[in-house]
Design a protein around this nucleic acid. Structure first.
Length: 878
RNA sequence: GCGGACGUGGCGGAAUGGUAGACGCAAGGGACUUAAAAUCCCUUGGGAGAAAUCCCGUGAGGGUUCGAGUCCCUCCGUCCGCACCA
């Protein structure tokens, strides 16, 4: 077939994309009506932080969400697909410090830029629902909920450790601590206690844990990570007596939590957190201990830093008495690896069966006694040196516990100590403990949601009355000094107490930005309501989010906080459900090669020219021709400068090419490598589809559907319907890379069919091609919506493909009359056998044994058995 | 340190425990062209063979199974999160 006239023209994305974006806009087809009676579907991508410009990670995330939204719309759902801005945060303050621009100005300029970029991607978003968390019309409601949570007992104040920069006299985020030093001052950071507001997420620990089982559309790995984060453990709380001769002041006992009470006879020492009251008391009389505790505080608060720091201990001289033997005294140490937040902040150490305890005794020469003997080991010769044993076994060296299993020993110890009392209280009691800590939300920063609290000299902590909300951020602030500008603001900070009218001071801490993102999905259901955080009718209608899509880096904190927040909103009447996200998908990162000059400077991909074939690639700097070293493929980051600007890609190739490439190369939950070759491949395919559709448009279809289809026409129909079936299934499961492969296959089949037409097109083939063309365009519409509109119009349709229904598959086109089964002999493939679709096992067996290849492989032997797996495979076992 | 994942051709990857390498990229050969671009056709895991065909092959080693890329155990390597980055 010859292509002619307009069909030989290349598809021009730069012309087509804005045109179709305008058409969608004018007809308002992505605006969602809250009174739409159809079944709802809520698809949401994690909203962006307005950092400046969108990056490729955004392109990937929002493309995936858009595919789902467009597909569900075609399936007849009323789709909610909103977008907003996670607009509070530290980078705005850094910009204010570095560039003397107000955080608000900086943020809103970024929002404007990024919104324009998102619009050029052709996303089917309902922009009427746009929200920015830094807008008082949003955070006003957050303050209201804080107060409601406070009244409901979900908020508390606690002392919490922060990173303190002693030079800048300011609190640092973990991110601002580099190798234990402040990022601006370079001074070693210290831990400091601050009085902070916390949300009592730990009250929901058990519920957040058990409800994970109901989230069957969440990735297993995310549920597992949350489970481990919550960290439920069952154990025993034991009160050890202190040897009065050695104990400071009136301290008479030490309470510890243990999950291994069975190893009590292997105990060698006790260890206290440096913040434990007993440690504080002992330090008051012991300057060396006080110095040691101070030393422990000379590091950041990040868990990884604490865990990897060298294990250190200090013998307080205090002795604890073994609960089963008044004559057995254990030394009490202060140790830097014991956390005050977990359990009671004190432990007993059993080195033989805990690696950290073993490292500790080996360092301080306290020895170890194994009390659990592994199966098959001789208890007399079993010793522990460098590797602790934490497996199963039977109890040894443990007096009355000897011979028991670990479980029996745990039970026996618990039962004995529960019965024993001291001062009317049992010596031990069983307890369930969680690793999960309450959520500290206080931040000593300006650019965040003000905490609506007033501190009065007389009345103490006084909530801001609801009628006075919002507490808005003052805009006349400067960033010329370190620290929180709210803290030194002359008028905003000083207020009258709402209760007594006396002098008072505003809470100058603002909320963690995770609070902002813990309920935005609920606000999207009705972002207009002014007198309440949510309209219950709309929240109840739209929530839960049916499909939530975002990065795996949010697997724990953001998702756990949102799950808690939704429960807290339920308790305070702002929502009616427990779980906000019914379906979750975590997408992989966008990664790229890195390039470095001889002097070690990183170079951007856009400035590099690559030559040579795979395995022999060379890179040079375009500007100077200087050679550049090609480095590892890494996450796109500003520091390595291996970023590609989505604007550049959309400018040269169009949004559809960027979208298509994002979906095509890698499974969506894995990293995708951005490459120039890949983009060009996507671009070629766009042109190929355009040519193919042009050729189909040239075919004159008969007015009526033919009664009969010849083999070639039937093959075309089968290819289209098979693609339709496969793409539908894979979109629903978010396997976009497979959708892409199916669309390639379909396009290849249609192209081949057209290529084989030598003279005139028969009416049945013409009809089949037109049908296949209509199906194909609707299939790739969710991925490449602009191209799809252009093709849809070229096929003569007057409607928008974005408003078209998803095509219907004809099931009889999916089944074949004969099937070809692979035949194995002893697990190795030797032949194929083609049998009727409904052939019985005996018929298949007979056909297989008659095959020459099978006879040869059997070499005259008779088969022991023949395994026929219907529709799958035949295996002959000799 | 703790927790979670991943590992398949030259590359990205495909494969309800059932034909390993779909689909794409890159490469090689050819057609078209004065030439290039674009496009189209063919080949492409390794080895043996003229061919039919056979042998090897999914990070390494072991195991379960008629059958393992897939399940189990041990090891190696890479990546992500760790509570004040968002």
């Amino acid at each position: 077939m010859t292509a002619e006239s307009h069909k030989s023209e290349r598809y021009n994305a730069r012309d087509a994309e804005p045109r179709w974006q305008k058409a969608w806009d004018e007809r308002g087809i992505f605006a969602t009506k809250n009174d739409d009676p159809r079944q709802k579907y809520y698809v949401l991508e994690m909203f962006p932080y307005p950092s400046g410009r969108i990056h490729m990670g955004h392109v990937r995330n929002y493309t995936m969400g858009d595919v789902v939204a467009r597909y569900k719309r075609a399936m007849g759902f009323s789709v909610l697909h909103p977008m907003g801005w996670d607009a509070f945060g530290m980078p705005a303050e850094n910009a204010a410090i570095d560039r003397k621009v107000h955080p608000k100005t900086w943020t809103y300029e970024n929002i404007a830029t990024m919104k324009a970029q998102l619009k050029s991607m052709g996303l089917s978003l309902d922009w009427a629902r746009e929200i920015a968390t830094c807008d008082p019309s949003y955070y006003k409601h957050q303050q209201k909920m804080f107060l409601d949570f406070l009244r409901a007992g979900l908020v508390a104040r606690e002392y919490r450790k922060v990173n303190w920069d002693p030079v800048d006299q300011t609190v640092l985020a973990n991110e601002q601590v580099i190798d234990g030093k402040g990022w601006r001052s370079g001074a070693p950071v210290e831990q400091r206690d601050l009085h902070q507001w916390v949300f009592k997420i730990s009250d929901y620990a058990e519920e957040l844990l058990t409800a994970l089982d109901t989230l069957d559309r969440w990735p297993e790995k995310v549920r597992l990570m949350q489970k481990n984060w919550i960290g439920r453990s069952e154990g025993l709380l034991i009160r050890f007596m202190l040897d009065s001769a050695t104990a400071p002041n009136n301290e008479s006992e030490l309470e510890i939590f243990t999950t291994r009470p069975d190893t009590l006879f292997g105990a060698k020492f006790m260890a206290l957190s440096p913040d434990h009251p007993l440690a504080t008391a002992a330090a008051a009389k012991n300057p060396k201990l006080a110095a040691f505790i101070e030393e422990c505080h000379r590091m950041g608060t990040a868990q990884a830093e604490i865990d990897t720091a060298e294990k250190m201990g200090f013998d307080t001289g205090i002795k604890a008495v073994h609960p089963f033997d008044p004559n057995w005294k254990l030394p009490v140490y202060v140790a830097n690896f014991i956390l005050m937040d977990y359990g009671t902040g004190a432990i007993f150490g059993c080195p033989a069966h805990d690696q950290r305890d073993l490292d500790f005794v080996n360092k301080y020469g306290l020895g170890n006694t194994p009390v659990v003997c592994p199966p098959g080991q001789d208890p007399k010769t079993f010793v522990i040196t460098d590797v602790a044993y934490d497996g199963d076994g039977s109890m040894i060296n443990s007096r009355f516990l000897d011979g028991m299993t670990i479980a029996q020993a745990k039970e026996d110890v618990a039962r004995r100590l529960e019965k024993e009392t001291r001062g009317n209280r049992p010596v031990a009691q069983r307890q369930v403990n969680y690793r999960l800590r309450d959520w500290g939300i206080s931040r000593q920063r300006y650019w965040g949601c003000p905490i609506p609290i007033i501190h009065c000299e007389k009345c103490g902590v006084v909530p801001v009355p609801d009628k006075d909300l919002p507490v808005t951020l003052p805009e006349d602030v400067t960033f010329d000094k370190p620290g929180n500008p709210l803290d030194r603001h002359p008028t905003w900070k000083n207020v009258k107490c709402p209760q007594c009218g006396g002098p008072a001071r505003r809470e100058t801490d603002t909320m963690d930005t995770f609070v902002d993102s813990s309920w935005y999905f609920a606000r999207f259901t009705d972002p207009w309501i002014a007198n309440a955080p949510t309209d219950r009718k709309q929240v109840d209608k739209w929530l839960p989010v049916d499909q939530y899509i975002g990065g795996i880096e949010h697997a724990i904190l953001h998702l756990l906080y949102s799950r808690f927040f939704t429960r807290a909103m339920k308790k305070t009447g702002h929502a009616g459900l427990d779980e906000p996200f019914a379906g979750l998908f975590t997408q992989g990162m966008v990664v790229h090669e890195t390039y470095r000059k001889k002097n070690g400077d990183w170079v951007m991909p856009a400035d590099v020219k690559i030559e040579g074939a795979e395995g022999n690639r060379r890179a040079t700097l375009i500007a100077t021709g200087e050679p550049v070293e090609i480095g590892a493929i890494e996450k796109m980051s500003k520091s390595k400068r291996n970023t590609v600007d989505p604007d550049d890609i959309m400018e040269s190739y169009g949004a559809d090419v960027a979208r298509w490439f994002m979906l095509s190369d890698s499974p969506p939950d894995r990293d995708v490598i951005w490459s120039e070759e890949g983009v060009q491949g996507a671009s070629r395919f766009v042109q190929r589809l355009w040519r193919l559709v042009g050729e189909i448009a040239d075919v004159k279809a008969p007015a009526a559907r033919p009664a009969q289809f010849g083999d070639a026409a039937l093959a075309v129909r089968k290819a289209a319907h098979r693609a339709l079936h496969n793409v539908s299934e894979d979109i629903a499961r978010l396997r976009f890379n497979r959708c892409v492969a199916h669309i390639y296959e379909c396009a290849n089949a249609l192209g081949d069919a057209i290529g084989e037409i030598d003279t005139a097109v028969t009416p049945d083939m013409a009809w089949a091609l037109r049908e296949a063309g209509d199906i194909l365009v609707r299939l790739f519409h969710p991925m490449m919506p602009h191209l799809a509109e252009e093709c849809w119009a070229a096929l003569g349709h007057k409607t928008l493909v974005a408003s078209e229904a998803w095509p219907q598959v004809e099931p009889e086109l999916l089944v074949e009359n004969t099937i070809t089964l692979p035949v194995q002999v002893n697990g190795k493939k030797r032949a194929d056998v083609t049998v009727p679709r409904d052939a019985g096992k005996t018929d298949i067996e007979a056909a297989v044994l008659a095959l020459d290849a099978v006879k040869r492989a059997l070499d005259g032997k008779s088969p022991k058995k023949v395994i026929v797996v219907p529709q799958r495979i035949v295996n002959v076992v000799a």
